[in-house]
């Protein structure tokens, strides 16, 4: 399933969607950035509540398909624009990380 399809089927919104056709292969949840880089797999959707600029670099380097900001978190100022520029998809979910993951489980 692509990131774009995920938005439609899970009720997320897009803060930045420069690569909506990217395929999503799984899910990783975490807020400690080094931990995420050590464990998240390429092409996974990464659920987090961290919203600073560093998440764009982490998503780029770990090669995740998209970042999903859970709990209604919005990206810090300038982060959505930076993500769009760097080709990183950022979605927003009003749900908790757990409930967001459940939606993904049903969709994927």
């Amino acid at each position: 399933m692509t990131v774009k399809q995920l938005i439609d089927s899970c009720g997320f919104t897009a803060a930045a969607l420069p690569d909506g056709d990217r395929e999503v292969s799984g899910v990783y949840i975490g807020d400690l950035l080094s931990w995420v880089m050590g464990r998240a797999g390429a092409d996974e959707a990464w659920i987090t509540i961290m919203s600073n600029r560093n998440i764009v670099a982490v998503a780029t380097l770990a090669d995740t398909a998209c970042i999903i900001l859970a709990e209604g978190v919005v990206p810090d100022e300038g982060v959505a624009a930076l993500a769009a520029e760097k080709g990183v998809n950022i979605l927003q979910s009003p749900l908790s990380a757990y409930e967001t993951a459940l939606r993904l489980r049903d969709a994927l």
Partner: peptide
Amino acid sequence: SLGFGAGMGLPNMKRY
């Protein structure tokens, strides 16, 4: 508070 400083940096470098 920015999500770093978890003591995983050097272990990750070794791991990868």
